[in-house]
């Protein structure tokens, strides 16, 4: 069964992966990180990504249609941010206990494969907490 480090190392095997982290979006804490991050500081990158993730998770506009199920926590699956040279993929991790974490992968744009990364990251999030 993979722990946090194994999960992040697996994420680093995605094509074009530059860095991967597991971040708590309430506190902004990086529970684990491997590789590099924009600006060279993974703690700052984690805190900034957490802020975006929190806003996304809290907005009603992004919750799925049958909204009466308030317990689907978090309501959002993932978040994609792209710029000229890279992609950021933030995947929320649903857990059986109370938490607010997401996987963050930074991919180079030229060799990254966003579709593949989305699928793989979803699988990794599941394996991380479900075994």
């Amino acid at each position: 069964m993979p722990g946090i480090d194994e999960c992040l190392l697996e994420a680093m095997r995605l094509p074009g992966a530059r860095g991967a982290a597991l971040v708590d979006w309430t506190s902004g804490l990086a529970l684990g990180s491997v590789g590099e991050f924009p600006g060279g500081d993974h703690e700052v990158a984690a805190a900034e990504a957490a802020e975006v993730a929190r806003l996304t998770a809290e907005q009603r506009a992004f919750t799925p249609d049958h909204g009466e199920d308030d317990r689907a926590d978090p309501p959002v699956e993932d978040l994609i941010i792209s710029n000229r040279d890279s992609y950021h993929l933030l995947r929320f991790v649903p857990t059986s206990f109370d938490s607010s974490v997401f996987l963050h992968v930074w991919l180079g744009r030229s060799d990254g494969n966003l579709a593949l990364a989305r699928i793989r990251l979803g699988e990794m999030a599941g394996r991380l907490v479900l075994g």
Binding site: M1, P2, G3, I4, C7, L22, D24, S27, L29, L31, T95, S96, F97, S99, V101, R127, L128, V129, L130, G131
Partner: peptide, 21 residues
């Protein structure tokens, strides 16, 4: 707990780190 397969390692690490900080 881990050896007996009672909880996935990732889940326990996540909860433990959360409780620790």
């Amino acid at each position: 707990l881990l050896d007996a397969g009672r909880i996935p390692r990732g889940a326990l690490e996540l909860c433990h780190l959360g409780a620790l900080y």
